[in-house]
Design a protein around this nucleic acid. Sequence first.
DNA 1: TATATGACGTTGC
DNA 2: AGCAACGCCATAT
Length: 105
Amino acid sequence: MSELERRFVDVIVALGEGEVVSYGDIAEVAGAPGRARAVGHLLATHDGASGVELPWWRVVTSNGRLVPGHEREQRRLLLAEGVIVRDGRVVDAPAGRFRRSPARP
DNA sequence: TATATGACGTTGC
DNA sequence: AGCAACGCCATAT
């Protein structure tokens, strides 16, 4: 696992309940802005065999879209944490990038 | 080496 | 709103 991937993992495991962020946010916080795709690749290939379990369901696309192919599961997990999901999209979350009352463009 | 593909993102039309 | 064009990283073939 590369150093960059380790930093991604650090950021992801630090996510708390109801904290929903995007791939780009993770890359940016990890100090690698623009590397959102690498984050996606990491989550897609990470099987947990290394011992670290990642809260993948707290990661969505930049516009709040749920992960294609895992929408059912992700929606269930997010709702259990108080995140409002409507029509396959995060519209409101207790914390993170899609939190309740931040900047409202 | 080169091309294609995928849990992505931004910009512009 | 929908779509195409790039840009991006990591694997697969």
